[in-house]
Design a protein around this nucleic acid. Structure first.
Lengths: 179, 179
DNA sequence: GTCTATACGCGGATAGAC
DNA sequence: GTCTATCCGCGTATAGAC
């Protein structure tokens, strides 16, 4: 894994800006400034605003795959279940500063307007739903756990950080799975 | 309840546009056209774009109160529990075309950028959380049911309509409450 | 590869007619 | 109370220098 390229740094800046300021305030100038390049420099790497969005969506796809692979590896090693991994990374404070969580929040914020972002969000959610269903052996249970994570994401979008559920997600999970 | 005023019709158009086209494409022109007035006409009723947003937020506050009152009335009459009402109106297809659901989705879409909208969304979510906790007698259970509804809203934002959970929300609810 | 300068269109808001 | 006309600022994108 090489050190971050200029392209990566620009996508970082884009995600940062969407998360902290919101999608409507995203301008090429603002993203360029945050990335430490000029507008012209940005447009050399991404020929248009749409290409910049595509860059972020590609990153989310990659991170989703990696995150699911990590969950599967942990489950195989007996460290924690996939459901455990999923809720922990959705609810726990330190994990919510992860690249994946932040990028996902950015995509969801943009999804309100950009159908391409909405499609990427749906694909990511569906992928998690599939592994959760596979592990629990029941589609409704898998969807239930997935929906809890989704609810936590919605609250993140609305700026809500701490609720009983995010504090005690492990208690909740034990109740749902009956163990 | 008088027939809809011009102001109401403009707020309707605003909600419609945000839900179907997304917040970034909202222009005074587009909203005015949808409401059947000119841009100048719109600006007579709402002096600025911000005032228009405030009008929608006010509507969501009113509809939230009314919706919660309806849930309480149904519970008092023994028709259905508050939790039942909440999940039904979040999950069932016909209810999702209700004024409240649509307005809430619009507010959540805008919440990504506008802090005022995010605050209204948080207030509405907190109000539901409170009644659900009151009914179930347990904060975590109340929050769990609220989070399921929130997850359904997130999926609505991402354009996902039907999942196992939205189809079988009543089965899920029985499992959560253990009856 | 990255920057500066600039063209161009669009959206918000005001003024004033009807 | 609603419309038309107009101004102004901002954001995207291009051209071209370095």
């Amino acid at each position: 894994m090489p050190r971050p390229s200029q392209r990566d740094r620009i996508v970082d800046a884009y995600v940062d800006h969407v998360v902290s300021e919101g999608p409507e305030t995203v301008t090429l100038d603002a993203v360029a400034a945050r990335a430490g390049v000029s507008k012209g420099g940005l447009l050399y790497h991404f020929g248009s605003k749409e290409a910049l969005l595509a860059g972020m969506l590609e990153r989310v796809r990659v991170l989703t795959e990696a995150d699911i692979a990590a969950a599967r590896a942990a489950a195989a090693a007996g460290t924690e279940t996939v459901a455990h991994y999923y809720l922990r990374t959705s609810a726990d404070d330190p994990d919510r500063d992860s690249d994946f969580f932040r990028a996902m929040v950015a995509v969801l914020k943009v999804a309100g307007t950009e159908e391409a972002a909405a499609a990427t969000a749906r694909a990511s959610m569906a992928a998690w739903h599939a592994v959760l269903t596979e592990e629990t052996g029941d589609e409704l249970t898998g969807d239930l756990i997935a929906a809890l994570g989704d609810g936590i994401y919605l609250r993140a979008i609305a700026g809500e950080r701490s609720t009983p559920l995010t504090r005690d997600w492990d208690v909740t999970l034990r109740r749902l799975l009956g163990n």
